[in-house]
Simulated assay, not measured.
Amino acid sequence: MMSEEGHITVLGIETSCDETAAAVVTDGRQVRSSVVASQTELHRKYGGVVPEIASRAHIENIYPVIAEAMSQAEVGKDDIDAVAIANQPGLTIALVVGVTAAKTLSFMWGKPLVAINHLHAHLQSALLNEERIDLPAVALVVSGGHTSLYDCESPLDLTLLGSTIDDAAGEAFDKVATILKLPYPGGPSIEKLARTGDAKAIRFPRSMLGRDSLDFSFSGLKTAVLYHCRGQDMKGADRVDEMDEREIADIAASFQAAVIDVLVRKTKRAAGRIGARTVLLGGGVAANGTLREAMEAMCRRHRPPLRLLVAPKQYCTDNAVMVASLAYHKIKAGLLADLTLEPSSTG
């Protein structure tokens, strides 16, 4: 399993949604290459990811991306100790492309195969530069398809505390951006516009789902934005075209504030419940600067203060570095997969 020098070099592959990614990482931290083929332009006109289009793009990109990752890392198949693949959760039609490629390379090269949970890998992004973390830790993954809280005892020991019951935070950003006629993807568009808006202009609802709940719901918030723009009976004219930029910016800022308020308050609630010392934050929405600032402020005010570890922005969105990094820990623990591995839309 290990090279002659005692190091473990992993080729990671990620195709869970609309990014085709491959990376080579040694010992879980030394990032030797990271290649991502984005599909944003393919899906932009639809305002969201179209699974069939995503799958076809993965098929076209998968082997060129893997070849480029190995070229940049200056490694050949003999330098790779294992092949890791994110096989869950995600779009099955997209996952199957990466899983097939990984199993093929594992078989052809005679290398071990490692199965990775995509959400757990997002949290690994926050640990890339850490020797150790103060436990227990509460971990929040915020992405387009998932909003989940975990009790994290180690990179391999994660217990789900709560998750979304309808729209995930990133999905809500995309849908509200569509309502406001902002460019896809919605997260960056809303964040940029919100900087010029008043976050207190509109008091959008914060769904906490009960005083003890650690689950998330953003569907009602999305609907509140829609009603604000179209009227409570949805029979009014779409007022967005008549709004000036300041009014749209106020809606964006107020919506973003509502999402962030819920994320921070739920994380604080979870930290108190498990007696956390550390907060981990990962996923595409974790790139949002306002969220990062709000989470940092909460951790600073908490008694005792919490340490916040956030994924570097280049590793917030889907990537294969996080896959290869988490695979290192699974290899060390002897947790390998075999060629019967299948993709799963849930995880």
Rank of each mutant, 00 (worst) to 15 (best):
R44V: 00
R44D: 01
R44Q: 09
K45Q: 13
K45N: 14
K45V: 13
Y46E: 07
Y46P: 02
Y46V: 07
Y46N: 09
Y46K: 05
G47R: 00
G47K: 01
G48N: 04
G48D: 01
G48T: 03
G48A: 01
V49I: 08
V49W: 01
V50M: 05
V50T: 03
V50C: 01
V50W: 00
P51Y: 02
P51W: 01
P51Q: 04
E52K: 07
E52Y: 04
E52F: 04
I53L: 12
I53D: 06
I53K: 06
I53A: 11
A54G: 06
S55E: 12
S55T: 10
R56T: 07
R56Q: 10
A57W: 02
A57K: 04
A57I: 06
H58R: 10
H58D: 10
H58K: 10
I59E: 12
I59G: 11
I59T: 13
I59L: 15
E60L: 13
E60A: 15
E60R: 15
N61L: 11
N61M: 11
N61R: 13
N61V: 09
I62Q: 07
I62E: 07
I62A: 08
I62R: 07
Y63R: 14
Y63I: 14
Y63F: 14
P64C: 07
P64W: 08
P64S: 09
P64M: 09
P64F: 08
P64A: 11
P64E: 07
P64Q: 09
V65I: 10
I66Q: 05
I66C: 09
I66D: 05
I66S: 05
I66K: 06
I66L: 08
A67T: 15
E68I: 12
E68G: 13
E68L: 14
A69Q: 12
A69S: 14
A69K: 09
A69Y: 08
M70W: 08
S71M: 15
S71F: 14
Q72M: 13
A73D: 08
A73E: 04
A73K: 05
A73V: 08
A73F: 09
A73H: 06
E74R: 15
E74H: 15
E74P: 12
V75M: 10
V75I: 12
V75G: 07
V75K: 06
G76I: 11
G76W: 09
K77I: 14
K77T: 14
D78Q: 12
D78K: 12
D78I: 11
D78G: 14
D78W: 11
D79V: 09
I80D: 03
I80S: 03
D81Y: 00
D81T: 03
D81H: 10
D81L: 01
V83F: 04
V83W: 03
V83I: 13
V83G: 05
V83S: 02
V83L: 08
A84L: 03
A84S: 03
A84P: 02
A84W: 00
I85M: 00
A86P: 00
A86F: 00
A86Q: 00
A86R: 01
A86T: 02
